[in-house]
Computed example of a mutant assay.
Amino acid sequence: MKKNRSGLVMLGIVVVLYGVLFFLKPDETLQALGESLGVLKMIIPILLIVFFLMALLNTFIDEKAISKHLGKLSGVKGWLLALLGGILSHGPGYVWYPLLQNLREQGARDGLVIAFIYARAIKIPWLPLMVSYFGWAFTLVYTFYVVLGAYVQGMIVDRLDRKERDV
Rank of each mutant, 00 (worst) to 15 (best):
F51C: 08
I122C: 00
A108S: 05
A32W: 05
D110W: 14
G135M: 04
K2C: 10
L53V: 06
L99Q: 04
L112H: 04
T143I: 02
F52H: 10
L24Q: 14
R120T: 01
G93C: 08
I44T: 07
N4T: 10
F116T: 00
F23V: 12
N102R: 11
L148M: 12
P45G: 05
E63Y: 10
L127E: 00
G107H: 01
I122E: 00
P98D: 02
Y145D: 09
W136I: 07
R165G: 13
E63D: 09
L57Y: 04
K3E: 13
W136T: 08
I49A: 12
F60E: 08
L53F: 06
Q101C: 12
R104P: 02
F51G: 06
N58V: 08
M155T: 13
F138D: 03
A55N: 15
G154A: 03
I156Y: 06
S67T: 11
K77Y: 13
L80T: 11
G135R: 02
H90D: 13
M10P: 07
D161G: 11
I117T: 06
I66C: 05
I156G: 06
R104G: 05
I61N: 06
L88C: 05
G111V: 03
R104M: 08
I114F: 07
V39W: 15
H69A: 13
Y142K: 00
I66G: 03
M42N: 11
N102E: 11
K72H: 12
F23G: 09
P45K: 04
K25Y: 15
G34Y: 12
